[in-house]
Structures are given as structure tokens and as C-alpha cells.
Design a protein around this nucleic acid. Sequence first.
DNA 1: GCGGCTTCTTGATAATTATCAAACAGCTTT
DNA 2: AAAGCTGTTTGATAATTATCAAGAAGCCGC
Lengths: 232, 232
Amino acid sequence: MRPDDLPVIRELELFAGMAEDNFEEVMRPAYLQRFPPQVELIAEGDAADFLHVVVEGSVELFAHDNGRETTLAIIHPVATFILAAVLRDAPYLMSARTLAPSRILMIPSENVRAVFERDAEFARSIVQELSIRYRDMAKSLKNQKLRTSVERLANYLLREYEEQGTTGIVNLAIDKKTLAALLGMTPENLSRAFNTLAPYGVIVDGAKISLTKVPDLRQLAKPNPLTDDPGT
Amino acid sequence: MRPDDLPVIRELELFAGMAEDNFEEVMRPAYLQRFPPQVELIAEGDAADFLHVVVEGSVELFAHDNGRETTLAIIHPVATFILAAVLRDAPYLMSARTLAPSRILMIPSENVRAVFERDAEFARSIVQELSIRYRDMAKSLKNQKLRTSVERLANYLLREYEEQGTTGIVNLAIDKKTLAALLGMTPENLSRAFNTLAPYGVIVDGAKISLTKVPDLRQLAKPNPLTDDPGT
DNA sequence: GCGGCTTCTTGATAATTATCAAACAGCTTT
DNA sequence: AAAGCTGTTTGATAATTATCAAGAAGCCGC
């Protein structure tokens, strides 16, 4: 592990409050590894041996059923994934693969559980993290069940628009195939959904999306904090 | 509160491990109330003032967006709901209504949070409960994104079949309109989905569903523990 | 029993989404 | 520059799901 990585991880909300010696105990057996893109880090059904932290790059959480595949979330630095499986010592429900060249911190599950038992601050942070994740998942389910694919795309664009500083340009950080899977549609349909949004000022140029009529787009999308706002 | 209710609640996994005096402190300001069916207990967007426990009856968690409504879960006794909102002191993401005449225990959120801070066993239980809920939500999302409506119905029936003792008869505990919303389809489509399943030995008689060709149904449904098994 | 009610079902049609096939664009490799 | 990728788009068609309208079945109060 590079010496300048630890402070970054320490600042993660999950670890920020815990006692220094407990932090060290969690981190001592952890290791940080570099992965190229498209490497499968974990597979659904596997035992949850490690808590993973995306330190750099990005990770896609996806799942299979019936021979079909879907994307459930994209994890950006610095954040953990599969915390729930680790805490329950249960099989992963999702697989994970790197999207970009990434550095992943892997902490043995036992250590997470052991320190959780005796560090109340850490326990508190874990509960907050889990609650956020639960709520994000609930929002995703609402998004999927209550909106059409065009609406999901419109809301996704508006969310990115806010996060990227309302400049009028949204840069897609993931390729369109992955975006389609995340939004619960086929790549062909994503392409058509972009066309449908053209009258609402959505101009596509590769991964660069211009939003020229945000009020119109907003009227179509009808964003709702109880479905859209992540991390609350 | 009836004196014989407390032990039942005490046995809830969430409360089982905690110290007696802490349990009393959580419960002292709580109150147990009886509600007729179809009473809206909480509304999405409201502040999370109480942790709710379904002691008797049943509760539907549902949500709106875009003028549409969907059902996210049905809660049976004895179980809590909206724990994540309580812990984060954040607005509810879902509304809740009674489906049957129900008795609901309401515990002020502050008390839950206060005791959580100092009872490590309680904290542990909360983490387990949250993890289960997160994973159930993830399973629901997989179910919704990866399966057709007929497949979702088939898997629902098989799950109920197991839970109701594999007798060949499944009794629907909720009306078909609610089931349709839970499975993410319209009532009309649910009716048609049942017809589609007739060749697989699914015979509908009101709320009584007979499964006469379970192996065939299973072959169609392709149930998967990583999508279906609740509470793991 | 008879309205009156709700729930559920059926039919016809429309909207949404997926599939299959082919073309195209932007890459890299040779 | 040509060939071969991969990712994306477009077109044609099919499958899935929703909507609208009407009918059937069950339930309740009187």
C-alpha cells in the first residue's frame, strides 16, 4: 500500500470516526491491488471474504438471472461495496468488475466484523452507510418500477448535470452499453431514447451530451428527491 | 399496550440481544395502536418520527412517482419497517398502509437512536436487520430488471408454495390488485399471467391457487436463491 | 332475493421495450 | 491504407406490457 493512500481511506465516512488503533487493526491485513479494466473482482454466490474499497478507478456491480445480465450500480472512489454481505457473512448477491484501471483495497471480512464488535463509532458509521445503501437501492427500485426508460434516462442526465456542475455539458463516464444496463434497457433502446429526448434539448456527441433546454427536460423527467437524490 | 405483547416484541431479532433496562427505555415511550385496514400510517416525504413494528395484521409499503403507484413490500408480523429512515433521521422514501386490521407498535425515533448509541448488542442487531433489508431490496431489483412479469409471478408462487408448506395449495394473503403492484404489473396483466401459467399446473380459484405441476412451474420460473430467498 | 358495490377478468388496441440484422463510426493493427 | 475490432446506431419486426372499455363474479346491506 502506498503511504499516501491510508489518509484518503481514513477520511472515508465509514472509517473517519473510529479509534486509531482499531483503524490500524482493520488495515494491517488489508491489501491494495491494482487492476486493469474489465476484471471480475467478485462473482455473485461467492463467499464474502473481503470488504472492498474503490480507491481509484470505478467498479460496476452487476448480476445475472435467467441468462440475462443487468447493472445495479456504478461505484466511484472513494467508496465501499458489498458491505452487507460482509456483515452477514453471506454470499454476494452481485458480481463486480472494474470499468477503468482501478486500485481496490481489500479488507478481510473477519477484521471488519471483529472491529465492528468493539468500536462503537465504527458501528455507527456502518449503520449510516448501510442505511444510505438501503435507501439508494429503494430509490433504484422506485425508478425502475415507476418510470419508463425515457424518463429514467432524462432523470439520469439531470442528475449528472447537477453533479457535473450544471455547465450544460454532461460527460458520460461509462460507455453506453453499461449505461443501458444501469438504466434497465437494451443499448438499442438507449440510442432511441436519446433520439426521443432530442426535442428536449439533448444533443449527443459520443460521450459528450449537451443539454440546451434543461427546463424542458426537467418538465419531462419530473425529478423527485425521493427517487433521485443519492446518498441521503 | 397489552402485557402479553412485550415478550413477543422482545423476541424480535432486533430486540432479542439488548440489555433489559435498555429494552425498557426503548419501550417506555412506545405505544401500540390498533388500526383498521387501508389506513395510511406514514407518507413518503414525512419525517421519520417513529420506528414502526407490525405486531399483528399486515402493512403494505408503497411509493408514488409521476402519478403512478407501486408496492415495494408487504410486511408481516412481527417485523419492523422504515428502520433506515429512522436511523438516518431522513424523510421516508415510502408510504405505508395497513392491509388488514393491524396492531402497530410505534417507537419514537430518538429513543431508538439513543439506545443504539450505547447498547452494542442492539447495534449489532440493527446492522443485521439493515443488511437483510438491503439484500432483500437488491433481490427485488434483480427480480424486476431480469425477469418478465410471468416469471416474477411464477417465482412468487413458488416462494409462497415453500413458505406455506408445499401442500400444493397457495393462499394469496393479499388481493390481486396489490399483488400486481408488488410484482410490478397491472391487475389486467396479472390476470393474463395466471392464464399463461395454466399449462404449468397453476389453477386459480379466487385467492386459492393450486399448483399441480410444480416441477414444470419450477422449470419455467428458474428460481435462484440469489434473487428469491428472502431474509438472508 | 335484489340492488349496489368492489374485485377480477376478458377483449381490443396502443404503447413500450426487446430482438435480429445490418450498417456505420472510431479505433488499433498490420 | 486496408483489415479487423468494438461500440453504437438504424431499420424492421416481434414480444411484452399498458390502457381503455365492458362484462362477469363475488360480497354486503337491506
